Simulated scan of single mutants.
Amino acid sequence: MGRVIYFIYILYLVGAGFYMSKVSIADEKVVRIGVLSQNEDRLEKFEGLRDELSNLNYQEGKDVVYEVMTAPNDYAEMDQLAEKLVSQKFDVLVASGEGETRSLSKTVAKLNNPPPIIFMGALSPIAIGLVESEAIPGTNVTGLNNYHYELIAKRLDLLKRLIPHVEEVAVLGDGRTNLFQDSQPGLAQTARELNISYKMYDISMEQDIPRIVNEISKTSQALLIMPGLFLETHTKAIASYALIKGLPVFGVYPSDAEKGCIASYGTSYYNQGAQTAHMVHKIIMGYSPKSIPVETAEKLSFTVNLEVAQKLGISLEEAYIYFADKVIGQGGYQ
């Protein structure tokens, strides 16, 4: 009899614990989340965040409310929006990328008790100074490493294997970023292994796109886009000019293949936001951002656009078409 009573008591404690955890999520108060985005494209990350938090039983308007502010690639305006978000004392601040994280971090640094900041995808957060350690961030900032820096050499490898006749690749980057220089040792090693050459091109102004693409077309057989805000927002224009010059372009995001790139390899905006939702959930449950490890992207997608290949008159290596996670054109399959 004593054992039965003890067993029932344990079940009661377990049930009570489950009930209390549910109360802490949904019933004690409405969680207020402030979101800062540098452009409209990155709002797809917010869509992933919101949808996944809904899957985690956070009902918008009842359990959680959002305030989303967007600066159209304007750093001065973004700093102002960061000030505005911080002044409203949100429970959690969510940044769409590196620039947004820096603006929010700079603003909350003035506070004695800064709120947690979660970034929905940034490249190599230790290298760019967002966190001191991915395992133990140690500050009020943590988030998702989208792995875009680490994947640059892999994109070069996939480009060569997909289009074997390529002998020289133009790598297009923004020289204002550390990434432009830091990525070159990895690119050089991969180029040697593939027995191809590459040349770096610096671009940071929209009006320079036609001139630089024209210059590239004189010597290179393909173009590789590096990660970065400027290139991220001008991929479609670059791909359009490259198509005129007969150049295949390899992009970063899965959506880049839909913008005119012949292929791309990386994680989508949406998936970055959805994965980050689980980190926001931990914050809501009471975990400190100091103890929440920076995560790496779980879902990487290799996308191939056969329509672009056909327009360019390029035959792609069939084995790598089958290797793709998504194929666009000619009855593309998953």
Results as ranks from 00 to 15, higher is better:
250 F>L: 05
201 Y>M: 01
221 Q>Y: 08
238 I>L: 10
228 G>F: 10
204 S>L: 03
217 S>E: 00
204 S>M: 02
224 L>E: 02
218 K>Y: 07
214 N>C: 01
210 P>L: 03
249 V>G: 01
244 I>Y: 14
211 R>I: 00
239 A>W: 02
207 Q>P: 00
210 P>S: 04
239 A>I: 02
241 Y>R: 14
219 T>Q: 08
208 D>H: 12
228 G>A: 08
244 I>H: 15
212 I>N: 06
221 Q>R: 13
207 Q>I: 01
248 P>D: 06
201 Y>A: 02
205 M>E: 07
210 P>I: 00
226 M>H: 10
231 L>K: 06
226 M>F: 13
227 P>R: 15
208 D>G: 05
205 M>W: 05
220 S>C: 09
210 P>N: 04
236 K>T: 11
217 S>H: 06
244 I>C: 09
212 I>E: 04
246 G>A: 05
241 Y>C: 03
228 G>E: 04
201 Y>E: 02
246 G>K: 12
241 Y>W: 14
233 T>Q: 13
232 E>K: 15
219 T>I: 00
221 Q>I: 02
248 P>W: 13
205 M>D: 03
248 P>Y: 11
229 L>D: 12
204 S>W: 06
249 V>P: 04
221 Q>N: 09
231 L>D: 03
249 V>C: 01
243 L>Q: 14
222 A>R: 12
229 L>N: 14
204 S>F: 11
249 V>D: 01
247 L>T: 12
214 N>R: 13
234 H>S: 09
212 I>K: 13
227 P>V: 09
244 I>F: 14
238 I>D: 07
249 V>W: 01
235 T>C: 11
219 T>N: 11
237 A>D: 06
217 S>M: 02
203 I>R: 00
233 T>C: 07
236 K>D: 09
238 I>F: 14
250 F>H: 11
206 E>K: 15
217 S>P: 03
209 I>R: 02
204 S>R: 12
212 I>C: 04
245 K>C: 01
248 P>N: 11
240 S>I: 02
242 A>H: 13
235 T>V: 15
223 L>A: 04
234 H>F: 09
209 I>T: 01
229 L>Y: 14
230 F>I: 08
216 I>N: 09
209 I>W: 03
228 G>Y: 12
230 F>V: 06
234 H>C: 05
204 S>T: 03
202 D>S: 12
235 T>W: 13
248 P>A: 07
221 Q>S: 11
208 D>T: 05
205 M>F: 05
237 A>S: 11
223 L>Y: 07
236 K>M: 10
210 P>C: 05
241 Y>N: 12
240 S>K: 15
207 Q>E: 06
240 S>W: 07
244 I>P: 09
245 K>I: 00
208 D>F: 07
224 L>V: 01
249 V>T: 03
243 L>C: 10
227 P>H: 14
220 S>Y: 08
237 A>N: 10
243 L>G: 14
248 P>G: 09
230 F>H: 13
227 P>K: 15
244 I>A: 15
243 L>F: 10
233 T>D: 09
237 A>R: 14
248 P>L: 04
217 S>T: 00
241 Y>E: 10
239 A>H: 01
241 Y>H: 14
228 G>S: 10
217 S>W: 03
220 S>I: 02
217 S>D: 00
241 Y>V: 09
209 I>V: 03
204 S>D: 07
225 I>L: 15
250 F>C: 04
224 L>Q: 00
240 S>E: 13
211 R>M: 01
216 I>D: 05
232 E>H: 15
